[in-house]
Design a protein around this nucleic acid. Structure first.
Lengths: 240, 240
DNA sequence: AATTGTAATTGACTTAAGTCAAAAAAGTTA
DNA sequence: TAACTTTTTTGACTTAAGTCAATTACAATT
């Protein structure tokens, strides 16, 4: 059963009162997707944004030539597809808007809530607290995109991969806000290598060669999905 | 003299009452920059976000190798450097934050207002209307970055350039919300070609070759800063 | 108009990363 | 465990776009 407690896992809703959560649940829909299922296509008319109660979702575009690019990888607690809500809000006329990209579940039992934009907008307008929450999550996403875009233009694939690994390690090495100094650190990839490639703005073959290069240079070791970074403190300095 | 009317040109402040604008003016600082002047470096401690009353500003990063990448080009009415405000808001401790990129005026007499984040945050928390404004402008920026990042990965430089030109033409061809069907359309570049190059994620030499290519294919004609697109309706279809 | 400086273009060369095709490894199902 | 599918890796080749160097065009100042 879905109850309002589950919703509190979603950052945007985490500080709401129970009665407010019940309210949101009343006008929203919960759905569970299995791995590989499409949540929406970029051709579908917009009917609300999503929150991830549990699971993993990729937001991606496909080029006319068929190449995929993952713009965002989001997991439990995140929301996505909020942007068209504000486009609709700004639009004078009652024009139709589409989802800005495709979304797919990349983990079994991915549980999401779909919140219709019109109900939520009236809620948002009366509630500065949740506005602030949303501003914070937008700010976080803007920050990510800003640095990601810079990285794609100014760094080569190997450096982008290294930055990705280091970031994952940093999350791993941080316990209740106290950063442990990690020399060696092992992480487990929670997405496929082909998803990682298209998230880093490249293709599987090139990613594979980058992994090889980092191993040859004795910076990391790879065993399946397990990646060990040898000297995190040193690596953090050189990727700056 | 700066009065509250000028502030209304800034989208974020456009719906505020005069007394609220006076209030903002009281805790903020106005400054005029000439072309090429630095507004802030990414090494400086964060002391507030900016609004452009009049002029043109580039927000950019420099790679260790010295290559520049322009993340945003903003002109009159826009705000920039809001992100660290929310990082500060979220941070429990009173940690210092830096500006996330460099900002430079790229037009003479660029007039900006700097709004200290702490004063503005308390203002924002009490004011859902301005929250909504800010959410809308964040949404607009996220949308731009999403499509820009996709374009950088999936399109070549020539296509990115063409998309840029078409977008400018569309702005030109739109008068009070009614879109004129334009067959031929001329725009004037309002930034230097080297700025355009680093905004498109490339270098001047490559941009120059892309301009040449589009001219050879008889898609555009270039006379200095004037660019004429020959068949806008057709071009819009092929760059989709 | 001459001088100087900056911005843009062109050519020759190099390289990172993409394409295509095939093999190997890993994961899944019967 | 065998058969099958999917994912990942490897090799050979191609290409878009970057680097470096030199030239040309444009703009500003005296």
């Amino acid at each position: 059963m879905t109850n309002s407690d589950e919703l509190k896992n979603i950052f945007l809703f985490s500080e709401l009162e129970d009665f407010e959560l019940e309210n949101i649940l009343n006008f929203s829909r919960i759905k569970v997707y299995s791995k590989g299922e499409i949540i929406f296509f970029d051709t579908e008319p917009y009917i609300g944004f999503y929150g991830i109660i549990d699971g993993y979702v990729k937001i991606y575009k496909i080029s006319p030539e068929g190449r995929e690019h993952i713009i965002h990888l989001e997991n439990s607690g995140s929301t996505f597809a909020e942007i068209p809500m504000f486009e609709k809000y700004l639009a004078k006329t009652n024009s139709t808007h589409c989802y800005p990209a495709n979304a797919m579940s990349i983990e079994d039992n991915t549980k999401v809530i779909r919140v219709p934009e019109s109900d939520f907008l009236s809620f948002l307008r009366e509630n500065p607290k949740i506005c602030m929450k949303m501003l914070c999550s937008f700010a976080r996403r803007l920050k990510f995109l800003n640095s990601h875009i810079g990285s794609i233009i100014l760094d080569d694939v190997t450096k982008r991969l290294l930055k990705y690994i280091v970031k994952k390690c940093e999350c791993n090495c941080t316990d209740n806000n106290s950063v442990k100094e990690c020399f060696e650190c092992t992480i487990e990839l929670d997405i496929s290598k082909s998803d990682l490639a298209s998230h880093l703005g490249t293709i599987t073959e090139t990613l594979s060669r980058s992994f090889k290069k980092l191993q040859n240079e004795n910076i990391i070791s790879v065993k399946g999905k397990l990646i060990t970074i040898k000297n995190l403190t040193y690596i953090k300095k050189i990727i700056k």
